[in-house]
Design a protein around this nucleic acid. Structure first.
Lengths: 250, 250
DNA sequence: TCTTACAACTTGTCTATACATCTGTCAAAT
DNA sequence: ATTTGACAGATGTATAGACAAGTTGTAAGA
């Protein structure tokens, strides 16, 4: 799935050791020089591996001292900048299941047509209901653009669409934009999520792209407010994008 | 504020040129070799600058072709992994103001005491109401831990606390964890935000840390649901943190 | 005409080295 | 007892070079 170069292998290995508390929170990793000898690589390669862990929030580098293992795994672990169910984190191993309500080949509806899609863009439409402890928690409505998504069997939709796209179709998923809002639930959505009429629902809209910047997925995810939780780890960015703008904190 | 090393200057410069469409969306940046000559640096330095832009979502690197300028600035620009007002983006230059409701030195309330704080942790408590077009939009309740925050004048609270901490006190803000949920509004919150009784409110709780991993701020931010919007750009992470866990998409 | 092979260019990865800067320690000087 | 300074060890930054691997256009070949 991911290129098996040295820096990734090292990052994966250290991440795993942090996860298993071989490197415990609030302790320092071996120094970069020691890691060089440990893995038999140059210092830059070690540093690129550590950069990945820093970005993920697993460690914090402190100049002159070392790389400190952070104690925020409970926050950052199951996710990585994604929306998830409230219980999905705590409830690893809980009874969660996915019910595929619809799956058909169609074209993108007019309101989703933009300059980055064709006029009559073919797509697979998938509607899925996520249940946790038999309770409806999330309703996903996905359009998977075709091309690049050539086929989409129902079994893949019930399991993990991403695993299918990456594993079977060999697509390389790269990045996504997400937008979270709270809106009044549409009656069809309210019914499927067992919400009160006129109830509020959390909506996560996202566009997902491949490595060659091809748009391949447009999703709206409707979450029951009481089941919704979004966890994020953010580093303060150095680049000022709007120097003239009143800076928002973080 | 940020170290003025070559890679940051170059990243800042290219980001600025992208912003002003000197490098337009859907076009390629000059090649790394050309950028080397342009800035008179080595290729690794250029690459580290480009890595920053990649992480921010300004460009996408494509092997064998070049660095493509992405067309998602409208999404990613005013933010960078932060929560913001719904209008704050569109409403740059709109009439937004901050009213400081409270500012006092106190100790951290019991429910916020954790193993990473002292038992009787002194802190500044600040309560601020953010108004947009004279409408209450967000209520912020901040505890700024003292130490490391030695002083906090009211003028700083009305302006930007972060600018004060970084500029005047010389603190180096590094990272934060955030958690977004939707909850029933407490009566005191509902009143200040002019919500319906028993209405829902979006709550963003965050812990913010300095570069030496000192916790310095605990915040709860209450957003009117109809004014709330969170925008995010996320890259697919390579590191598998829970290999045994059902992978969540992204 | 079509296909293949290659050259030129791109980014990706890794190495080795050098020097700057910060932290902590410890010994010497005050 | 306190301060100062030297030093070792840590991360931060920059450089130069080498080779791998992907993309594109072109020229040679069938």
């Amino acid at each position: 799935m991911q290129p098996a170069n040295k820096q990734n292998i090292i990052a994966q290995d250290i991440a795993s050791k942090i996860h298993h508390e071989i490197y415990a929170p609030k302790t320092f990793l071996p120094s970069e020089h020691q890691l060089c000898e440990l893995y038999g690589t140059s210092r830059e390669t070690i540093r690129k591996a550590l950069d990945q862990l820093t970005e993920l929030g697993l460690i914090q580098k402190i100049k002159g001292r070392g790389s400190l293992v952070l104690d925020i795994q409970r926050y950052t672990f199951p996710i990585s900048g994604i929306t998830s169910f409230k219980e999905l984190n705590a409830a690893l191993g809980m009874h969660a299941c996915t019910k595929v309500l619809h799956l058909k080949k169609t074209v993108l509806p007019p309101q989703l047509i933009t300059e980055e899609t064709n006029k009559k863009q073919p797509a697979f439409f998938v509607e899925r209901l996520r249940l946790i402890n038999q309770q409806p928690a999330v309703l996903d409505r996905d359009y998977l653009l075709s091309p690049p998504v050539s086929t989409l069997p129902k079994t893949a939709a019930a399991d993990s669409i991403y695993a299918y796209l990456e594993g079977k179709l060999g697509l390389q998923i790269s990045y996504a934009t997400k937008e979270i809002t709270v809106e009044k639930a549409d009656p069809t959505v309210a019914k499927k999520l067992a919400l009160l009429a006129d109830g509020l629902v959390v909506v996560v809209r996202s566009h997902s792209y491949l490595e060659d910047t091809t748009l391949f997925q447009i999703t709206a995810s409707f979450h029951r407010p009481d089941k919704f939780k979004f966890i994020d780890f953010a580093r303060r960015k150095k680049i000022l994008l709007h120097p003239t703008t009143a800076k928002k904190e973080f």
